[in-house]
């Protein structure tokens, strides 16, 4: 198990470096990172810098919430969002910011390019909850926390989202 750094640890503010070696050492690290994620209650994603390793790698797995469309467990290496569409307000928390949740605006749909553990390029299109989790984790790779994007702790801004949802129907 790896230790999860918590804010205001300055390492969480660092921009991570691309992964260059897709080797056994990387696999071993991913195994330990995943074990760390699984040990954290309700955690749907974890990024390498959260455990003090500033490389561009994150794991996202929202399959524990099956009502949301998802791609299962994703190991995202050197990920890049190539397209954004729409925006939505949603509630986020983070194991690097214990005992706090807040509202953050994220793109509703994204296209994502990343490499897997074998160094193969993969492309995904995702939306909603999974897209939010990916955007949350990718922020960690750029030294950003959801605190940096906080809109409101209160519910009033949800009205706009509700209005948008209804308007589409």
């Amino acid at each position: 198990m790896l230790e999860v750094l918590t804010y205001p640890d300055p390492q969480l503010k660092q921009v991570s470096e691309p992964v260059t070696a897709f080797d056994a050492v990387l696999r071993d690290f991913v195994d330990r990172l995943e074990a760390t994620r699984l040990a954290a209650p309700g955690c749907v994603g974890i990024a390498a810098p959260q455990v003090g390793k500033t490389i561009r790698l994150a794991i996202v797995d929202v399959s524990s919430k099956p009502k949301h469309k998802n791609h299962g467990r994703l190991v995202l290496i050197n990920p890049e969002i190539t397209q954004w569409e729409g925006f939505a307000l949603g509630r986020e928390g983070c194991h690097s910011v214990p005992d706090y949740t807040g509202n953050v605006i994220r793109a509703e749909r994204i296209a994502l390019r990343a490499f897997d553990l074998d160094g193969r390029e993969q492309n995904f299109e995702m939306e909603g909850f999974e897209a939010r989790a990916v955007q949350h984790e990718l922020d960690h790779l750029d030294g950003l926390l959801f605190l940096d994007r906080l809109v409101s702790h209160r519910s009033d801004l949800f009205r706009r989202k509700n209005y948008g949802e209804n308007a589409k129907k």
Binding site: A40, G42, C43, V44, G45, I46, A47, V60, K65, H68, G90, R91, E92, G93, C94, H95, T101, F129, R132, A133, H136, E137, H140, F146, N162
Partner: peptide, 11 residues
């Protein structure tokens, strides 16, 4: 009346 799940992303 609308009731929705307030889904929380914990990452």
């Amino acid at each position: 009346v609308r009731v929705a799940d307030l889904d929380l992303v914990i990452g």
